[in-house]
């Protein structure tokens, strides 16, 4: 535990010093902070626009940070040879990998928390005035909106934890560029895993081989769309805790799978 914590802490502070990461964060906060400006594009649905742009940016930029940071955590250590001094100390490879993962995750989560905070402030100022009824649209209900947004941000933390786990483990197997591309690919296809599930339906008339492939994709890919609850925010349907808990559980199970794979790969990996 001590070793994991030490590696994680060093990784966390090191993460904050990455220039490209600071760049993404500043850009994200600018976009989120000015998300209410986009709302003039859609009179009558400003609130939808605000939530889409705000939460969409948190997820998108969080994903960028998770992929680019995650896919470089281990390769950077190897390239800079910092890994040698660490692994020659009483640190097992699994401890090292876990430390890197949790340290990187702390960086991603704190970056996203900053974005989330920015969005929350913008939302609290702007939402009440956007929720007023207009000639073209009925009034928005805002009974559950504030807590739903907090839950949506919480879910996106776990979503990015899965993405980052994939990036870290992929970077143990591939080069970091390939790992980043692979992680993007998994994330994007995972966004539409439900779609693959539909395509695997016997009604589509797909060939048996295609169906097996689609079904495998559907079963193996993380269902990233489950972390997205923006629809319920707009319709002001409460996001119930049992759903949040189950989704987080799904995320944790995927992280377990990914880290078990990481253990299998990294233990054989030569550094």
């Amino acid at each position: 535990m001590r070793a994991i914590f030490r590696v994680a802490r060093a990784t966390y502070y090191e993460g904050w010093r990455k220039r490209f990461l600071n760049g993404i964060l500043v850009f994200a906060i600018l976009i989120i902070g000015s998300s209410w400006v986009f709302t003039y594009l859609q009179p009558g649905a400003e609130l939808k626009m605000l939530i889409d742009v705000g939460l969409g940016s948190i997820r998108f930029f969080g994903m960028l940070i998770a992929v680019f940071l995650g896919s470089r955590l281990v390769p950077d250590e190897i390239e800079k040879r910092t890994i040698y001094t660490l692994l020659s100390k009483p640190v097992t490879r699994m401890q090292f990998l876990l430390g890197k993962f949790f340290g990187g995750l702390a960086t991603v989560v704190s970056n996203m928390a900053l974005m989330g905070l920015t969005f929350y402030i913008v939302f609290m100022i702007k939402a009440p005035q956007f929720a007023q009824p207009t000639e073209d649209s009925p009034a928005y209900k805002m009974e559950f909106m504030y807590e739903n947004i907090a839950k949506a941000v919480l879910l996106s933390f776990f979503e990015m934890a899965v993405v980052m786990g994939i990036a870290v483990v992929a970077s143990v197997v591939f080069s970091w560029i390939l790992a980043a591309i692979f992680s993007f690919f998994v994330y994007f296809t995972g966004q539409m895993s439900e779609f693959f599930g539909h395509l695997a339906d016997p009604d589509t008339g797909a060939s048996p081989v295609a169906r097996v492939v689609l079904l495998t994709v559907y079963r193996v890919l993380p269902h990233f769309e489950n972390f997205d609850v923006r629809e319920s925010i707009l319709t002001d349907v409460p996001v119930i805790w049992s759903y949040v808990g189950m989704t987080i559980g799904m995320g944790v199970l995927y992280i377990t799978i990914v880290l078990a794979l990481g253990y299998l790969f990294f233990n054989q990996r030569e550094v």
Binding site: E14, R81, P90
Partner: peptide
């Protein structure tokens, strides 16, 4: 190691403290 390199954000005592705590 040959051409050693360490976490940039630390200074020497912090680095040694981290390694020592391991």
């Amino acid at each position: 190691p040959e051409g050693p390199y360490f976490y940039e954000h630390l200074n020497a005592p912090e680095l040694l403290r981290m390694y020592g705590s391991l």
